[in-house]
């Protein structure tokens, strides 16, 4: 029931997913450092963000570049509510709901625009809309703080000033808030892709012409899928705002984040949803730990000239790129696609 009749299938894959989820579930007790906790939080948030994108790309075959825009709407919703009206729980809820509502409305409008346009033009439209949102966010300084973004207070329960027993504080509350909401959203998305509507999404991906000949009005299905994905991305954005206590264009709206989402979905495995869990974990770990690990290695090889140059921490992006090329080359269907038994 919890998995919506869609278990991971495959022993290695199940073990891998169980490990990731179990570690995330107890992360604050395994890794007390704030940095490690931030990594775990980011993984949880990215899982929701990329799983909702996989519903569009992997299940429905929709290519959109506007997903970070919806992420940003949730983040700015919470940020603006907390900045303007003070650090209360009511503001968090209202900000998150307002961001989500806006995301749903904009997604529905963009979805209905796809009525007459081919996939490539639809992708272009989303690109234009996303650029427009970026410009809005950096020019409406009074509301969004412009390029600098917004820094704000969160409810006291979520801060280190809130003392729990045993040396724990509000950071633990923040973590479990993020973890729980992310888990619920992921299970919700898993339910959606395995619902009758989810089956239609796959039919659209496979052969939209035939789906229409079955009497399915694909436009409504695509639009609903877009709205659900946007709502989930927006809620993930709200979680990010609470985690960082900051929202800015680079953190939520940037195209480099959009590229990260695409990479995560492709590396994890399109059209599997579980790929988001694996992909988000690998991506975040690489981003946080590859550079320091290389620094350590470079020091170890400090006498060897070529090795030192190759392992220079400044070249970590090169190694990240090579890692991704290797994964895509050896697992064209993604890691989950590869490990899954049919």
């Amino acid at each position: 029931m919890l998995l919506s009749g869609d278990p991971p299938r495959g022993r290695i894959l199940s073990a891998m997913l169980a490990t990731i989820v179990a570690v995330l579930a107890v992360a604050p007790f395994l890794f007390p450092s704030t940095r490690a906790l931030a990594v775990a939080e980011r993984i949880a948030i990215l899982i929701v963000l990329t799983a909702s994108y996989d519903m569009l790309l992997g299940y429905t075959g929709i290519v959109s570049f506007a997903h970070t825009m919806f992420f940003g709407m949730g983040a700015y919703g919470v940020a603006i509510a907390l900045t303007r009206f003070g650090a209360g729980w009511g503001q968090v809820v209202i900000g998150a709901l307002a961001g989500m509502l806006l995301a749903i409305v904009v997604a529905a409008i963009v979805g209905l625009l796809s009525l007459r346009v081919r996939a490539i033009f639809f992708a272009m439209i989303t690109l234009a809309v996303a650029s427009f949102a970026q410009i809005l966010a950096s020019t409406m300084r009074d509301w969004t703080g412009g390029e600098d973004g917004l820094t704000f207070e969160v409810p006291k329960t979520l801060t280190s000033a809130f003392r729990l027993g045993g040396g724990y504080n509000g950071n633990l509350v923040t973590y479990y808030l993020i973890f729980t909401v992310a888990a619920v959203l992921f299970l919700f998305l898993l339910r959606v892709v395995n619902s009758p509507m989810g089956r239609v999404l796959q039919a659209i991906r496979e052969n939209e012409f035939r789906a229409e000949a079955l009497g399915l009005r694909t436009l409504w299905y695509r639009t609903l899928a877009g709205a659900i994905a946007a709502a989930a991305a927006s809620l993930a954005g709200s979680l990010l705002a609470l985690q960082l206590r900051y929202t800015g264009p680079d953190a939520t709206l940037s195209f480099s984040l959009m590229v990260d989402i695409l990479l995560i979905v492709v590396i994890g495995g399109m059209g599997t949803l579980y790929g988001a869990i694996v992909g988000a974990t690998i991506m975040t770990m690489a981003q946080y730990y590859l550079q320091p690990a290389m620094g350590g290695l470079a020091n170890a090889f400090s006498g060897v000239p070529l090795m030192q140059a190759v392992l220079d921490p400044d070249r970590w992006l090169l190694w990240l790129g090579l890692l991704f090329i290797a994964i895509v080359y050896f697992f064209p269907t993604g890691i989950v696609g590869r490990l899954r038994t049919p």
Binding site: S195, P196, G198
Partner: peptide
Amino acid sequence: GPGLDFLTMAI
């Protein structure tokens, strides 16, 4: 069918 139903399981 169940149309735009996205909360039940297809199976």
